[in-house]
């Protein structure tokens, strides 16, 4: 299968995602410049972490107007797999491809740390390698990861099983103490209604190799590969 990693001005986890897609997962991968109008031949598009446009104005607010985003939206509508990690999640929310917003962290500081998240739904193309309820130790690195949405949307997300990851204790308890940034309902990651677009604040690409101390994040890439291969042909 083939991954495409979008490069916005200011993306800085693009190389890391490419590395895992290409060298750890052993799949094809290519960088997609943000002015590109076309996602030909791709099975999964990753919007990587970083500070697109310096986070100026608001995280993701400028990047959502990059030409590639209209393509990403079309690609998602056709059922293509899209993953937004950290800044990529913020961009997907700004573009309205995912519901909700990511506000400044509760304590107003940038947080780089390892946290625990519980897998809430293992029946998605991004989480099928995990067992439901499994607790993963994943790194976060953001100043704006405080997820918020209105009550109705939250209810819809919950009813439809769109909440994929919640911050939890190592034992899997979703509690206030386990919430690093103030996210509503401890939400760390969600999918769209169609289940083919994932946005998450933690960085799975940082824990996909033994040498980095953990492979808890690799399951996301493995799930994607499995899902794409099951589909056989690419969609774009």
């Amino acid at each position: 299968m083939k991954f495409g990693i979008v490069v916005f001005p200011g993306s800085n986890c693009d190389h890391d995602c490419y590395h895992v897609a290409r060298h750890v997962s052993g799949q094809s991968a290519e960088y997609v410049w943000h002015r590109t109008a076309g996602l030909k031949g791709l099975d999964c598009v990753i919007l990587p972490g970083g500070f697109s446009y310096g986070d100026y104005l608001r995280t993701g607010a400028i990047a959502r107007f990059s030409p590639v985003m209209a393509e990403v939206e079309r690609f998602a509508k056709k059922g293509g797999l899209v993953v937004g990690i950290c800044n990529g999640f913020q961009i997907l929310c700004e573009a309205g491809i995912l519901p909700g917003v990511l506000m400044r962290n509760r304590d107003l500081k940038f947080i780089c740390d390892s946290v625990y998240v519980r897998v809430e739904n293992a029946k998605t193309p991004f989480t099928s390698s995990y067992r439901e309820g499994r607790v993963l130790r994943l790194p976060i690195a953001h100043a704006d990861g405080n997820y918020f949405t209105d009550g109705d949307t939250l209810k819809r997300l919950e009813d439809n099983g769109q909440i994929i990851f919640r911050y939890s204790t190592p034992d899997g308890e979703v509690s206030a103490e386990a919430n690093p940034n103030g996210s509503l309902g401890n939400i760390a990651g969600i999918v769209n209604r169609g289940g083919n677009v994932l946005g998450l604040m933690p960085h799975p690409e940082r824990v996909s190799e033994e040498v980095l101390g953990s492979i808890d994040g690799r399951g996301i890439f493995e799930s994607i590969v499995r899902a794409a291969q099951a589909r056989g042909t690419h969609l774009s």
Binding site: N12, D16, H19, K109, F110, I111, C112, D113, P139, L212
Partner: peptide, 27 residues
Amino acid sequence: IYRQYDHMVRTDTVVLPGSDAAVLRIK
């Protein structure tokens, strides 16, 4: 202090802050 610094981006940091020296891999 180091919780405010992204010390993992580029995925080379094998030994994170807090030890005698940080250790980086060379891909």
